[in-house]
Design a protein around this nucleic acid. Structure first.
Lengths: 223, 223
DNA sequence: AAACATTTGTCCGTATGTATA
DNA sequence: ATATACATACGGACAAATGTT
């Protein structure tokens, strides 16, 4: 399930660096730590009540994942997010999601198809109720099932990272998940059942790339 | 250029953790540190003449990149590579390389096309001379030009990581780069010039996925 | 089962280097 | 340009956890 990634449910048994990592990432996603803001180890250590070591280690992980930018010996700051970022982010995301769909075909079971159809029904209900936050969560779940079914650790790992960035960009921009998504999901399920790898790739890509246009039109209105 | 990634040309100005990171990754690629081998911080620190801090930090980076596996509180070991790994690795690699080709079209200049044709000529000469090591290096360069032209930092970063894994798998298995690759490269250049994103995607994918079959046949003979 | 030897996780001190007055 | 304040990079010590005899 996707949301464990930023719900920051702190399991106290985890190493401190992981706890700190999740807290900091959550803070960045929620914009408590703002884009461009400078992060100093001592300050964060005080604030979180830990020493500098777990702070340093978590900052380095955040940097690999692209949430912060480190200037060795100088400073660390929260990565800026400009409008162009989403254009860079979505194409690889779409490509990897599409690939997941294609690869998941060989691991498909009736049970998984049932789960996908159920999830899409719940998605449809959320869209109808115009509960877009809930719809977004269910949409993620839908895609996560497909990614999990593909059983490819490289793809999973890359998608975790990309998804987090997408969330960050969309967090305060309510995404418009239209009824078109419902139909596309249904199409995706049908094509996977029919084992049509080529077509499902195409539909999946379109499903994700449409978000670029929607994002740009929303932003144009807001700003 | 791709090989700076594991040539471990130690720039002494870099933070120690980066120096250590490169040394360790190089050692893993060269199988000086063998798959499954356990890495203890103190031992590595002694061997490299540094304290545990840069060792720890570099190990965490290696873990994100998938070269080692960390069991918090217990141990760290070099990731195992089995024959199935290449089947997991190449599909996302192919997808991202194909996407790079598609995206690079919009940034294409005559100069870049010229560079691609030149590189492919040098590639052809290396293949003819049966200098497969050199051919592999030039092949990487060819693809790197395309990735760079796409100008997408997310894709670049993911490919760096995937490529390193591929190298690890292929390192002691001389890849057979056939004359078919030469033709495909030529095709790719032509399709990019013609701005045919759809077709170049297809050819690029095939170019990369063919390596799966070749790898499997080679391994079957050797083992 | 219990004490032991290791190893990891965390903290903090110090040196080096960076930015600012 | 110099000095000062400050942050990071690294090292080393201690505590906690592991697994071993």
């Amino acid at each position: 399930m996707a949301y464990h990634e930023f719900d920051a449910k702190v399991d106290e048994l985890l190493p401190l660096r992981d706890v700190v990592y999740k807290k900091l990432r959550r803070a960045i996603l929620l914009e408590e730590l703002k884009a461009g803001e400078r992060l100093t180890e001592i300050h964060l250590a005080d604030k979180l009540g830990v020493s500098r070591t777990p702070i340093r280690e978590s900052l380095q992980l955040l940097e690999v994942r692209g949430f912060v930018q480190m200037f060795p010996g100088k400073a660390t700051q929260v990565t800026e997010v400009d409008r162009e970022t989403i254009s860079d982010l979505l194409p690889p995301l779409a490509a990897l999601q599409a690939l997941s769909a294609e690869l998941s075909i060989q691991n498909l079971t009736d049970n998984i198809i049932k789960k996908l159809r159920d999830t899409n029904k719940r998605f449809a209900r959320a869209v109808e109720k115009e509960d877009y936050f809930q719809a977004l969560k269910i949409d993620e779940k839908f895609h996560q099932i497909i990614v999990d079914t593909a059983e490819n650790p490289y793809i999973s790992s890359m998608l975790v990272s990309l998804q987090a960035h997408v969330r960050r960009l969309f967090f305060h921009n309510s995404i418009i998940l239209t009824s078109q998504s419902i139909t596309e999901h249904e199409q995706i399920i049908d094509l996977m059942s029919a084992r049509d790898g080529e077509q499902v790739t195409k539909v999946m890509r379109e499903n994700w790339l449409r978000a670029i246009e929607e994002f740009h039109s929303v932003k144009r209105v807001n700003s």
